[in-house]
């Protein structure tokens, strides 16, 4: 089995689904590049080259370069989904999503409910998120909590190349609108990815480490950091379970509950702004449903409530890190009470 980068895994998922199903189209700013201009076609393949090659394989009719009007092409994608295509719209940076909230929150998310369950909206919006790219406050946010908040949307956050391919194929085959989050710091990460198409179910968490002492829940790129922290802590004799929920909507809270009941200790790692994020949501649900199982207060490893700094030094301090996760795990180990 070949090692593939996260970028290749996403590209392969798109290419295989486009080959399998003629209703699948890709649209967005510069998803190919070169439209209406002299010079090289498909020079871009999206800002980080993820969709490169698709235009040559499937033609301009199925790989649509759009104007720089997110509200326009996201609305068009929602309408195309409603009328029988399966569009995968590329919205570059999730930070830009604000200009098309109506199309997403009030239209795409609601069609099924407003039309008495008769409408299907098989729309995928791929978008880049996350810090560490030295891209400053308008290109570094996570924002998946905003979409998780809206009933009618599904939200997937792959943590590795293998996860990216399986979750994206599932997203394309899903009949509901899916917001698909790709961390820009993961694109060059490589691992073994099957050549054949496969799907990963939504709403089923993945345990990337198993241990009896502490449960760590992490999302997207944070899963990689949590795994590294768990490996480091294993050397100190602290055994961690790491849960990657894969999707925040639907959220596999049952697996998190089960693991917290087993370990009695919870650390949630979330790169999103700290107020009303996934860490607060999960902490609240666990506090409500499994308080009696907790042997120590829940710890959240989250950034401070400020815009993402542009200064590299400040950005490094701002983001959750392996060291911060290790500290949080040590704190819940030290601060707990003995098992009854």
């Amino acid at each position: 089995m070949a090692k593939k980068s996260f970028r290749q895994a996403v590209n392969e998922a798109l290419s295989q689904e486009m080959a399998r199903d003629p209703r699948v189209i890709v649209m967005g700013e510069d998803v190919a590049g070169g439209l209406g201009a002299p010079g090289e076609d498909d020079a871009w393949g999206g800002p980080l080259g993820v969709t490169k090659g698709l235009m040559k394989q499937f033609g301009r009719e199925r790989v649509l370069d759009t104007p720089i009007t997110e509200s326009g092409f996201i609305g068009a994608a929602a309408g195309a989904a409603l009328t029988g295509l399966r569009p995968v719209a590329d919205l570059m940076f999730v930070d830009f999503m604000g200009v098309c909230f109506d199309q997403i929150f009030n239209q795409a998310a609601k069609f099924k409910y407003m039309f008495g369950g008769k409408a299907r909206t098989p729309l995928v919006i791929r978008t880049m998120y996350g810090g560490g790219f030295r891209a400053a406050s308008q290109h570094s946010q996570c924002l998946y909590p905003l979409f998780t908040h809206i009933p009618g949307l599904k939200v997937a956050i792959p943590s590795s190349p293998y996860e990216a391919k399986g979750l994206l194929i599932q997203a394309i085959r899903d009949d509901d609108p899916v917001i698909f989050f790709e961390h820009k710091m993961l694109y060059d990460i490589e691992e073994e990815v099957p050549d054949e198409p496969y799907t990963l179910p939504f709403g089923e968490a993945n345990l990337t480490r198993e241990g009896d002492d502490v449960t760590i829940v992490a999302f997207g790129r944070m899963v990689m950091l949590a795994n590294e922290a768990a490996d480091r802590l294993a050397g100190e004799g602290i055994a961690c379970t790491v849960i990657d929920p894969r999707t925040t909507s639907p959220l596999d809270i049952e697996t998190i509950l089960e693991e917290v009941r087993a370990t009695g200790r919870l650390v949630v790692v979330d790169e999103a702004h700290p107020r009303c994020n996934m860490a607060t949501d999960i902490s609240a649900q666990i506090a409500e449903r499994a308080f009696e199982a907790l042997r120590a207060p829940i710890r959240m490893v989250v950034p401070p409530h400020t815009p993402v700094p542009f200064s590299p030094a400040l950005e490094d301090i701002y983001l959750p890190s392996v060291a911060k996760i290790v500290d949080a795990v040590r704190a819940v180990m030290a601060g707990g009470r003995k098992a009854a």
Partner: peptide, 16 residues
């Protein structure tokens, strides 16, 4: 082991 289980799950997820 965990890896054996994960390997079989990965196989079972493949289309077909």
């Amino acid at each position: 082991g965990r890896e054996m289980v994960e390997g079989v799950l990965r196989y079972k997820r493949i289309d077909g």
